[in-house]
Amino acid sequence: MNIKPTLSAGVVIVRHFDDQYRYLLLRIRDYWDFSKGMVEPGEDPLAAAIREVEEETTLIQLDFRWGHAFTETEPYGKNKIARYYVAESAEGEVFLPVTEELGKPEHEEFRWMEYDAAFGLLVPRVLAVLDWAGKII
């Protein structure tokens, strides 16, 4: 029996620093990823991705200047697929707010990283997303 994978959605967020793009990475324990979270029943995946970015980082007004193209991971973990879009955040401070559910921030750290530095921190599943985003921007 094939069980349909659950879908999460997120955004590879970039920002210009010193004439180059840097990628926003978030850390939980020793695992780095882009902002993402579960798509609620009936929710549009892009709307879910935007909601998750705001909930996890407080960033708003993302510029999807490269359109709404996305990439998806192969199923992983407990039959989950992650869909990622690419957007620029030209302004706004990243803040990792305390979540009601956890009583602490969902992520422990964030970093704006150059492509090569980000490449060294990511697992293969997320590296493929970074590579895809790098080709778009």
Rank of each mutant, 00 (worst) to 15 (best):
P5N: 06
T6D: 09
A9H: 08
A9S: 15
D18Q: 10
D19Y: 11
R22C: 04
R22G: 02
Y23F: 13
L24C: 10
L25D: 01
I28D: 14
D33N: 13
D33Q: 13
F34A: 06
K36Y: 13
G37K: 04
D44Q: 06
A47H: 10
A48H: 02
V53F: 02
V53Q: 02
E54T: 13
E55K: 15
L59R: 02
R65I: 14
R65F: 13
R65P: 04
W66Q: 05
H68F: 09
H68N: 07
H68P: 01
T71G: 03
T71K: 12
E74I: 12
K78E: 14
K80E: 11
R83G: 02
R83A: 05
R83I: 06
E88W: 08
S89A: 15
S89N: 06
A90G: 11
A90H: 06
E91W: 03
E93T: 14
F95Q: 12
K104R: 15
P105C: 09
E109F: 08
F110I: 11
F110Y: 15
W112I: 03
M113W: 00
D116V: 03
A117I: 04
P124V: 01
P124G: 01
R125H: 11
R125V: 10
R125K: 14
V129P: 04
L130A: 04
L130P: 01
D131C: 10
D131W: 11
D131N: 14
W132S: 04
W132V: 07
I136M: 09
I137R: 08
